[in-house]
Design a protein around this nucleic acid. Structure first.
Lengths: 233, 233
DNA sequence: AGGTACCGTAGAACAACGTTCGATACGACG
DNA sequence: CGTCGTATCGAACGTTGTTCTACGGTACCT
């Protein structure tokens, strides 16, 4: 889990990479400019070498994506393992889910790639294990525990994807633009026929300027309440 | 919502499309061979014309994806509107969520594109309205209603994405292969250290050969019980 | 009937992408 | 010094999204 940085070249002509540096730079590229910025040529440029060299470390782009995803999930896992133990299993589960959600919000590309990780090994499995451990202390059947963790992961990913959709054009100045973005839709929704769209009218004020994290917390809380009730506590 | 097929050419040289035929053919391409099969040239081939012609109907591929997504959401919406009214609002919400989930399962590409629809207009908004209407009959605040629908959509999409990940290689004969796929992972998981992975060992038998729809229903049920409890019923 | 304006269509070309191939350099070991 | 396995890179190929420009067809006007 440590990250030995590739010995930074001193006047060498040919570039010298390492699995670690490739994945770290790929993640940095995704963080800074999104999925479309992660190309073999751009990655090679950052590493100071040729595009073909990367194929020595990964077989193709799918594998690059999988490994990079698992690489950053390692960070999430580390953050979750640092969480202080709360006595209540459901409180622990909530804290873990929030940590995972925060990580996905910071790296919006993660939402789309999180699920496509088809590796049994690796950090995704460890994360799954961590999320499941609190349920062992709840009075549930094995099947209920299995479903509980699936539900929590589903809520996290579903909410994160909902939230992570890109804005139509003005992607810069996203801090200010986001409220304009919501306001623009809210304005259009208010123009709709109240007879035909009673629900949209009911919630348009809540939608306008709403906080994504609060929205996620509310969704998570519904699942956790259902779970607590199922455990009979 | 009907799909008038473009009058099948009788010896015409030049192809003659329509917005409808473009979207229908794009959806068919996605259904039959997945997202990677939807290229402008392949689509033009099915329509019997040149690739550049499609740019008269859509500005770019993003818009093609958005419009195609909204097009098939129209089908989902039609299915949801055909649902018989159940007295209980939560029962109605569950029926709608299941219908939406089924539709996404049938068209696995939908899960990834469902959320990226940034159009205020269109069928997505109407679907959102439909999902929200049952909550109007529950004793909730506007904010709680807003969060309730977000939660349900999150569970549906999150579960559908979890389920829709492609198998590593053997994608053909998916009927039989799926159990092998699960079994392969289950086998690997059983080899793990029980001390380090107590949860994975607890649920591995549940994972092996599990039913996706049941898994989703369980997750949805947790959210719905939480919601029912919130409504004080 | 002839012109003309506009709606659609399409071929050819471009840049960028993932990927492959073959050649080349480097370090270790005999 | 020679050799082998590791690692790197330039050049090229096929495919993709996209643009440019030109062409065909229909309807309408004079």
């Amino acid at each position: 889990m440590a990250r030995p940085q590739t010995r930074t070249g001193e006047g060498r002509r040919r570039a010298s990479h390492s699995m670690e540096s490739v994945l770290a730079e790929a993640a940095a590229l995704l963080d800074e400019a999104g999925p479309s910025a992660l190309t073999f040529r751009a990655l090679a440029g950052r590493l100071g070498g040729g595009a073909a060299s990367i194929y020595w470390y990964v077989a193709n782009k799918d594998e690059l994506l999988d490994r990079t995803t698992d690489y950053v999930i390692g960070d999430v896992l580390a953050a979750i393992e640092k969480l202080p133990p709360a006595g209540d299993p459901i409180d622990e589960l909530r804290a873990m889910a929030l940590t995972l959600f925060d990580a996905i919000v910071e790296r919006s590309w993660l939402a789309a790639y999180f699920m496509r990780n088809s590796d049994v090994q690796g950090n995704a499995l460890r994360l799954y294990e961590k999320l499941g451990q609190p349920t062992l202390r709840l009075d549930l059947t094995a099947r209920q525990r299995f479903h509980a963790v699936s539900a929590v992961v589903g809520v996290v990913v579903g909410s994160a994807i909902d939230l992570g959709r890109e804005l139509p054009e003005g992607f810069l100045d996203s801090g200010v633009k986001r409220d304009d973005f919501l306001g623009h839709y809210a304005g259009a929704w208010r123009e709709l026929d109240p007879e035909e769209f009673p629900f949209v009218h009911e919630i348009v004020d809540e939608f306008d300027g709403h906080d994504d994290v609060e929205q996620f917390r509310a969704a998570l809380e519904l699942t956790l309440t259902g779970l607590r009730r199922q455990a009979g506590a």
